[in-house]
Amino acid sequence: METAQKTERQHPVGGSEAEAIIEVRGLTKRYGGDTVVKGIDFDVKRGEIFGLLGPNGAGKTTTMEMIEGLRRPDDGYARVAGYDTRSQLAKVKEVIGVQLQATSLFDLLTVREITRMYASFYNTPTVPIEPLLESMILGDKLNGRVKHLSGGQKQRLAIALAIVHSPQVVFLDEPTTGLDPQARRTLWDIVLRLRDEGKTIVLSTHYMDEARILADRICLMDQGKIVALDTPANLISSLASESAIEFRLPAGDHAAGADHPSAERLAERLETIDGVRRIEFRKESWVLYTDALQRSLTGLIAFAEQEGLALTDLQTRTATLEDVFIQMTGRSLREE
């Protein structure tokens, strides 16, 4: 079973035959007059890493907390391993493990003490504490106090506490926010290992690289709604343009912005370049999406020569989830 999953890492969830361990239907949450989650539906399949990707305020945390039973949905329902999160919450709590976005732990307890305490909360058998903490690379911190841990170590401890009762589903809410690159990579390895051990992981993030590297499927959320749900590869290929060409123009007529009349004319003419599918102007940069990078690039340079335009900061790259998000919502992931 484990080896099968490992070999299938790129496409671990082979279509519809995989069993849904989480079922979400019409899930809705309102705060006052604001509807922050607007009737969403999705399934999470057993053994996958399910990524909730979206900007801050998209409703990721609220969605997760409704599935965890920490918030009551105003409408719709969520089921985990067949248990309803409202009527069978006690059952749900036994099969899930939770790392909350803003959890702080007791600073004055040691790593071992706090793990033993969390283990005591469960009626089901728990895993041996020392091997668990060693697997989270905290073996030499067993008797160290929580307050002396680094940010990455604290997050790994939070994950250890979430899996101390060997739950079927693990919820990780923005586990790498605020960590340095090294600590993020260590955490990614741990998350992938958990999946390989057979756990289902629901992970929220606003980092597209994290979602692309970790998630088997990504649920792209914006303003309380799902804008897309697919594997990272399928999402990117849905752009129908594999590459993007970015450049700037020096301050002048053409650089003034997309709403400038001459810029509008410029955009119309750029669109005629061979292979270009779509044009965006954002953050003072022009972005041409193309499915024929080399031809479009040659075309662009010829166009610039002919018009006497001096291109700066010219770069090409493959299209990313960020581009998908922009296409779907018209906004950048990083915009607050």
Binding site: E68, L70, K93, V98, L100, A102, T103
Partner: peptide, 13 residues
């Protein structure tokens, strides 16, 4: 405020 109680609430405690 620090979410310690919420974290406990997510367990069967």
């Amino acid at each position: 405020e620090r979410g310690i109680l919420r974290r406990m609430q997510s367990t069967p405690l």
